[in-house]
Nucleic acid binder design. Structure first.
Lengths: 115, 115
DNA sequence: CCTCTCTTTCGACAAACATCGTACATGGGT
DNA sequence: ACCCATGTACGATGTTTGTCGAAAGAGAGG
């Protein structure tokens, strides 16, 4: 059976000038994804499995895709692992102050110091 | 038939210290609701039917409820009309800079000057 | 080659969501 | 009293979403 697409599906990352702020807001309006982003705001890059979230691996993959397609994160392959990083510069370029304002609003709400 | 609840259902508005930033983001991650908010950012208060959106009246009521329950807008009765205003001070108090950063990001994206 | 770990894809499911049409309530005019 | 304008509530519908488990791919190491 012609399984045309190998598993390494060449991760799709939108260009910075294609970002849609509504997609970014939607991507961030979820506790699991917000945790991912906050974790990345502290660490520059992490392997997929090392995030302090409590969902099944396949669910995590789903959340990464939402974030990636909104332009919030970038993922790259390294052997068996997939590394995830914030696209902070790109976001800052297109929507200045947006990410930090949102992240620090969440930090204020939860009482944690993230800024 | 005991139709216990009169139509005037005493509009529910959360206190500012109950705002959830995830709810606010979700409320704003919709084009219709974003249009409502941007319109209110320019005008202090408007009647429900005067927003430049293209949805059915009942759909509009739904969007107002989402915004209201997230703490983004306040609504008050006046005779037959319902007036809608941004809860800008309350939002600013709880999540400094959040609303304007988001609204101006959207403005930047659509090319309109909203800041 | 075989196995173990990491991560993805697929299929399924229930819950939430945006949308609408219809019916109804309220209040202002005539 | 009647009608019209404004806006809501309800019920229905189709779509999106978050979640999972099972199966499988890819690389590392024995």
């Amino acid at each position: 059976m012609p399984r045309s697409h190998g598993r390494r599906a060449t991760l799709v990352h939108p260009d910075a000038d294609e970002f849609d702020v509504l997609d970014v807001l939607h991507a961030l309006a979820d506790p699991t994804r917000m945790t991912i982003v906050r974790t990345l705001r502290a660490d520059p890059e992490r392997a997929c499995g090392t995030f302090p979230v409590d969902v099944a691996p396949s669910t995590l993959t789903h959340h990464f895709r939402v974030l990636r397609e909104a332009g919030v994160i970038r993922q790259r392959e390294d052997g068996n692992r997939r590394w995830t990083a914030l696209r902070f510069e790109d976001l800052e370029d297109r929507f200045p102050g947006l990410l930090d304002t949102i992240v620090s609003a969440y930090g204020r709400q939860t009482g944690s110091a993230t800024t």
